[in-house]
Every structure is written in C-alpha cells, then in structure tokens.
C-alpha cells in the first residue's frame, strides 16, 4: 500500500505509509555491512568514515542535500566508482560477509549480484527483448531460446511492464515513455536475479504518475530484494522505505527506521533538513 500524496515535494511533515515503514524483523543479519568507508575523488574527501548496516528484503532510503555523498556511497556498493578516474575507496563493505573490495572479488561478477538503476532511464538502443535478455546472455544464465524467452517474460512481469509491451518485444526500448523505460531498466536489472538493487534517484526524471508506478513496483520488489534508494524527495523516502539514512557533507548523520527519522529525529541537522530548514 503506497500513499500517493505530496509526491515530489519536500513536505515538512511527510505522510508516512502504514505498510512501508515496518521495521525488518530484528535479529536478522544485515545484507550489506559498511565499516569506516572513506571515498576520495583525487584530493576531495567525498565520504567520511561511513559505517552502516543495510538489511535484506527491505527498502533503505538515503536522503540528504546535494553533494552530501549519498550517491557516492551507493556507487561504492556495486563498485561503479571503479570506473571514475582518480576515485579511491577505503574501508570495508561486506555483502553477506564477503568484502566486495577484496582483490579476489571481480567487480563484473559483483555487479551481477548488485544491480543498479540510474537517475535517467538508460535502456540500450536495442529491442525491449534484447534489453532484458542482455544480462542473462553475458552471464550465461540461460542458453536456450525458450529459457531466455521465459526469463524475459518473467522479468518484465516482475517489473510490471509485460502488459504494456508483450506484443512489441522487438520494438526499440528507447521508444517507450520515460516511466516505461525506467521499468524496462528495472526489468533488465532483475533479469540477472541480483540480491541487491541500487536505485540512484530513479524517479527524478519522471512525472508524478510514472513515479507512483515505480514506487508501487519498489514496494512489490522489496519482498524479494534488498533495495537501496537515493532520493531527493523526502515524501518518497517516507512512502517507500523502511529504513532511512541521512547524509550531510559526506558524513552519515543519522540512520534508523523511516518512521523514527521523520517523526522523531535525534540529530538537529536531520531535524532541520526534514523540516525544510536546510538542504
């Protein structure tokens, strides 16, 4: 159940969803464990000593003003920062206990376990079918034609796009609307059956109706994946997430159950941000 009010606005008192904000069952080991993570872009110290536990099968939102390091931290989790020249990551990030920055971990296979959705929908300029089939093909998950067909269908259904595109799978993915493209990209990510899906402001380029569709989808997917979402919309964080982490100037200020962060923040900076006084 998603509450569709005040979308895309920084409401001083966000409406908090009923289902979405239940805390995960206590005692379950965290899916992602970050300890003392520091990130430098050349001489710029972008992320300062962040330690954070992210539970599986739930939605964790990263909020904070622009340049606070939330996207930087997100990109550490699938090592996309590796592609940025001059970027250096220190500390330890564990995925189910494995250090993902260990030399024995191949970023290519890590990214099969940790999928990512970007701010701007970026389907490949190929057909809808090929967009979804690309990941399984390169990872060799499905070799038979029928197996691949089934996987594409299942992924599109899970992304809530099958009904709209099942009769034009050969049409270019770039011909879809923005919201459909974003769901296609989500289908592409879940086709390789990752454990974690990272979303970097997935709705910031979409209209309110497409945003609502994506939020519903995130809600559905939360039962199967560990989802981490970076968002500028506090209303969105309040609607879709169970945990929220607030970043400010490269530091993790506060983290906790979403309901707590939005109704009873401990830190003054969080208080100022969510009430719209800063940020």
């Amino acid at each position: 159940m998603v509450v569709k009010v005040n979308m895309q606005t920084s409401a001083p008192t966000p409406v908090v969803g009923t289902h979405a904000n239940q805390a995960p069952p206590a005692g379950e080991p965290a899916k992602i464990t970050a300890r003392d993570v520091n990130v430098y872009y050349g001489a710029n110290h972008a992320l300062k000593s962040v330690s954070l536990d992210i539970p599986g099968k739930s939605v964790t939102a990263f909020i904070g003003p622009s340049g606070c390091g939330k996207s930087t931290f997100l990109r550490c989790i699938n090592r996309m920062n590796d592609t940025i020249p001059g970027c250096r990551v220190e500390g330890r990030i564990g995925l189910d206990g494995d250090d993902i920055y260990d030399p024995s971990i191949d970023p290519v296979s890590l990214r099969a376990r940790v999928g990512m959705v970007f701010q701007k929908p970026n389907p490949f300029p190929k057909s809808i079918y090929d967009n979804v089939a690309y990941g399984p093909r390169i990872h060799g998950l499905e070799t038979s034609k029928t197996g691949l067909d089934d996987l594409v269908e299942a992924s599109l259904k899970r992304a809530g796009l099958w009904g709209e595109v099942h009769d034009r799978l050969k049409a270019p993915g770039t011909g879809l609307s923005g919201g459909q493209q974003q769901r296609l990209v989500i289908a592409r990510a879940i086709a390789v059956n990752p454990e974690v899906i990272l979303m970097d402001e997935p709705c910031s380029a979409l209209d309110p109706i497409a945003t609502a569709r994506i939020e519903e989808l995130i809600d559905d997917l939360a039962s199967q994946f560990c989802i981490v979402i970076v968002t500028h919309s506090m209303a969105q964080a309040a609607r879709v997430s169970q945990q929220t982490a607030f970043f400010h100037l490269g530091s993790l200020v506060e983290t906790g159950p979403t309901g707590m962060i939005f109704t009873n923040p401990k830190d003054g900076r969080t208080q100022d941000y969510i009430t719209g006084r800063t940020g």
Binding site: N78, M80, T83, V108, S109, L110, R111, A112, G115, M116, F118, K120, N122, P123, F124, P125, Y134, G135, I138, H139, V185, R188, A189, V192
Partner: peptide
C-alpha cells in the same frame, strides 16, 4: 555515445570489452 549507456552496461555486469563492443562501438 552517451556515458549512461556505458554505465548501464557496466552496472549489469558487462566487462569493459563487452561494454565497448556490444554497446559503444555499434552506436
């Protein structure tokens, strides 16, 4: 070729060579 295409391919687990020859060069 827009960098978002490279990001998309890398994020799904394509190697650098695959990203270049499956996506960037065709475009």
């Amino acid at each position: 070729v827009p960098p978002s295409i490279r990001d998309g391919a890398l994020a799904i687990g394509a190697s650098r060579t695959q990203t270049v020859f499956h996506h960037v060069v065709p475009l």
